[in-house]
Design a protein around this nucleic acid. Structure first.
Length: 339
DNA sequence: CAGCAGGGGGCGC
DNA sequence: CGCCCCCTGCTGT
């Protein structure tokens, strides 16, 4: 990402795949569950009505929550998203209502669309037309201020994470990169992007049957599966509260007893968990504020505050991290800077 | 700014 | 399998 992509453009436009095809600048954006979703066992929220002809019928277990369609844009127009179908929390939105993309995102946030799932684009028609092997499937193409096209979509690669890894591709550079949000949260650098794992990748991936979790380790999957059960074998002898893991219980008991193993080397504070200590040190000693707003000079120790600041203004697509909502995981749709 | 619960990666046994 | 470490999200002051 270059500096030219920075503060000038308040937001981006959503386009179809044909960046040179101005007559066909319609993209279909749909929120839905998918093969990488947590839809299993969740009550459908279908708002009823026949799907538009361009919309494929949901597959079994797939929950189509909201269908959005961008409309043709003239030069200089604000990008629009047209609600084709509203479902769930958004089912009261009349079909055909147009929101700017920016407003749309704010609406998502204000409504706390905890039931929204994956923002995904139906590009099947255009992909059929386009024979380019680089045309991403199920991508939302986002045009930047320098006519760059970035596509953001659900990672369909084999190691898609439950928290919502996304693919980011920059057509200008004709490459596709794989975004791992957890990595970026640490590195804060797009250099951490690693190549998308192709479908020809032979690595064995273990998938959770109950949600979108995948792991390259069977042990991680076995441990993960336990979160879907109510079994909590570790019980606090002081308050009888139960926990899934011994670590959680230990931390809990330490909170009871006042045992704080993690002591700050620069003051007298001590904490139950290392994470608390690390955060304390950022607040009081290192003054590090890793989460920076890409629009203003605001920065924050904690990501949630930075996110609120970012959403309070407009949203810059220079570098974004998407964390989408899944029905099961009950996550909000987040867009925030991670540089 | 801190407390606390939850979850995943990595690693040793 | 258990544990450590780290990160995340929510909440209270």
């Amino acid at each position: 990402m270059d500096a030219a992509f920075g503060l000038v453009e308040p937001f981006t436009k959503i386009k179809g795949t044909g960046e040179e095809d101005d007559e066909d600048r319609v993209a279909w954006v749909k929120e839905e569950s998918s093969a990488c979703d947590c839809g299993a066992g969740v009550t459908a929220l279908d708002g009823g009505g026949d799907p538009p002809e361009w919309s494929l019928p949901p597959e079994e277990g797939e929950k189509q929550l909201l269908t959005l369609q961008t409309v043709h844009l003239e030069a200089g127009e604000d990008p629009l998203v047209v609600v084709q179908q509203g479902h769930g929390l958004l089912q009261d939105l009349p079909a055909g209502v147009a929101l700017s993309v920016q407003e749309g995102v704010c609406v998502f946030y204000d409504l706390e669309v905890i039931q929204s799932s994956i923002l995904q684009e139906r590009m099947q028609a255009k992909n059929l037309e386009s024979k380019s092997p680089e045309s991403p499937v199920d991508m939302l193409l986002i045009e930047g201020g320098e006519k760059e096209l970035f596509s953001v979509g659900e990672a369909k690669s084999l190691d898609c994470k439950a928290s919502g890894d996304l693919l980011v591709s920059c057509n200008k550079h004709k490459q596709q990169e794989y975004v791992n949000p957890s990595e970026q949260a640490v590195t804060k650098s797009p250099k951490s992007l690693k190549p998308q794992i192709s479908t020809s990748c032979q690595k064995k991936v273990f998938n959770c049957d109950l949600c979108a979790f995948t792991s390259l380790r069977i042990s991680s999957l076995n441990r993960h599966v336990k979160i879907h059960s109510d079994e909590k074998r570790h019980v606090c002898h002081l308050c009888l509260k139960a926990f899934r893991t011994a670590t959680l219980l230990r931390n809990h008991v330490n909170a009871h007893t006042g045992t704080r193993p993690y002591k700050c080397s620069d003051c007298d504070m001590a904490f139950v968990t290392s994470g608390e200590l690390a955060r304390h040190r950022r607040y009081k000693h290192t003054l590090e504020k890793p989460f920076k707003c890409s629009i203003c000079k605001y920065s924050s120790v904690e990501v949630s505050a930075a996110l609120l600041n970012l959403l309070g203004g407009f949203i810059d697509f220079q570098i974004l991290r998407f964390q989408y909502t899944t029905l099961k995981c009950n996550r909000q749709f987040f867009i925030y800077d991670f540089e």
